[in-house]
Amino acid sequence: MKLLRDIWLIFQRQMTLVLRNPVWVIVGIIQPLYYLLLFAPLLKKALTQAGAHTDADVYRLFVPGILVMLAIFGTFFVGFALIAELRAGVIERSRVTPVSRLALLLGRSLRDVVSLLVQCLIITLLSIPFGLKARLGDMLLAYLLLGLIALMLSALSYGIALKLRSEDALAPLLNTVGQPILLLSGILLPLALAPGWLQGIARWNPFSWAVDAARALFDGHPGDASVWKALIILGVLTIASVTWTARSFARSIR
């Protein structure tokens, strides 16, 4: 119970910080709109090759991809905020209290998950007029998947930030890791269009499983093998990254 209380305290403070920063709030809302309004028309032609004939088809392929992409890129860079907090001394101030070290991480990650899911909700709702249709149960499962991606990547990002402790080192590292993940996830275009060797590599990318699963769910096939596979893969990775970073929080931090 102490853990839950501590998570809630940290989460509340982190949420306050976000909401007090108007730039973040505006960017957070505009970013999804921009994906939706600028990207979708661009991809329409390309996606017809992959079997999308109507607007609704396009959105059914495109929206899940965009949501996964947002989950990756909206959370993978949260480590920067932690470096600022390390510098301000607020982490050290929390660490001398008996607060749970796991809560120091999960309170922050929960903030990231919540902000992401709000953005995803905006995109989903706005896509309905364009012909997107999906069942509530499938949607909830898809959101669980997105939440896992966000939790795992934000924890990973915080863990890397704690190790590097400098923005100058963090930026290139995150970019180098992030780019191939994105390119090989089949987000922008389905990997069915890719040559065989590329598909082979992509099979090792957990996010390409996530994208397949999200597309299956938006297509109304919760029983598709990709769904449970993605949930298990991401579940395991999330536990691993949370454990790793929570231990960094417990150990010494300059």
């Binding site: 910080l17 007090r20 301000a88 001394g89 101030r93 001398v96 209290t97 607060v99």
Partner: peptide
Amino acid sequence: RRRIGYVAQGGSTWDTVTAREELVLQARLY
């Protein structure tokens, strides 16, 4: 940790919250 207090050499506050909010949070973390 429960028996000591520690004030670091650098600062220890977030920029966009007030001292009162910080004091309440810090007490609650204990």
